[in-house]
């Protein structure tokens, strides 16, 4: 009887030890370059999944067929959303930079009859483990809202500022008397009611349970303009000058 347990214990430890190097055993190596891992290549990119540099945009990009995507069913407390995740791998000699997983929302692809999707990467802005510097063109086809608590009534649930598109960049304006050094928390909502939660953007990652982003004002101002470039998941602020 005791022997049986010993075998279980041995088997368990053996599994741990052996599987310990599972990813290394698979020996996946990538030559330096910028790669896309997505559902078509089962998250393991190859030579043909490399991004190429577009000089006019100053960005790396790759165009894929929407029909090649498969979507995972994400159950958000009973409501199902269909999302297809991708990642950008920037493989280089002085340390790899890999983005976090970024979702493409099936409803947006279908509602707009999208046939091809272009994914962009700005290697200068990319941060390891974050979505910053990486995005795609489907994200310009949905509504985004700027929600936060900048004094007065918080706008988390109601009265969030809807972004308006101007030349491919999304703009939201917040009018209020701010002082230099003021800080506030915010998030970018993928719809008025936050759904799908997995697409909530905190200026770093798309996730259902990330912490709020924080912005600190640099000057005294009465209007703050929020810029959001969803094709590279990048957020920046412009403080209007007060006369």
């Amino acid at each position: 009887m005791r022997k049986k347990y010993l075998y279980v214990l041995l088997g368990f430890s053996l599994l741990f030890v052996l599987s310990g190097c599972m990813m290394n055993l698979l020996g996946i190596t990538l030559d330096p370059g910028i790669y896309l891992g997505y559902s078509k290549n089962n998250n393991v990119p190859d030579i043909e999944d490399q991004l190429t540099y577009d000089e006019s945009l100053g960005l790396y990009k790759i165009t894929i067929n929407a029909s090649d995507l498969t979507y995972s069913e994400i159950d958000e407390e009973g409501t199902k959303y269909y999302l297809s995740y991708y990642k950008i791998f920037h493989v280089k000699d002085d340390g790899n930079v890999v983005s976090s997983s970024i979702p493409i929302w099936k409803d947006i692809v279908e509602a707009n009859n999208i046939e091809t999707i272009t994914i962009y990467a700005d290697t200068k802005k990319m941060k390891d483990g974050k979505a910053v510097g990486v995005g795609d063109d489907t994200k310009l086809l949905q509504d985004w809202y700027f929600a936060g608590d900048w004094g007065g009534k918080p706008t988390w649930e109601e009265d969030a500022v809807k972004f308006q598109e101007e030349d491919g960049i999304l703009i939201a304006k917040v009018q209020k008397d701010f002082n230099a050094g003021d800080t506030f928390e915010y998030k970018i909502k993928p719809s008025d009611n936050w759904r799908p939660w997995s697409m909530i953007f905190n200026a770093e990652i798309y996730s259902r349970d990330s912490s709020n982003a924080v912005y600190t004002l640099k000057s005294d101002t009465d209007e703050l303009t929020v810029h959001f470039d969803p094709k590279i998941s990048f957020v920046w602020f412009v403080e209007s000058e007060v006369n």
Binding site: L15, F16, S19, G20, M22, M23, G37, N42, N43, V44, S72, I74, Y85, K87, S101, S198, R208
Partner: peptide, 19 residues
């Protein structure tokens, strides 16, 4: 220990292993 592709539908949506 988790080994899979994806490791999780929620927190790591890519191929890998978790300890």
């Amino acid at each position: 220990y988790i080994f899979g592709n994806p490791v999780s539908d929620e927190f790591f949506q890519a191929f890998g292993e978790l300890y």
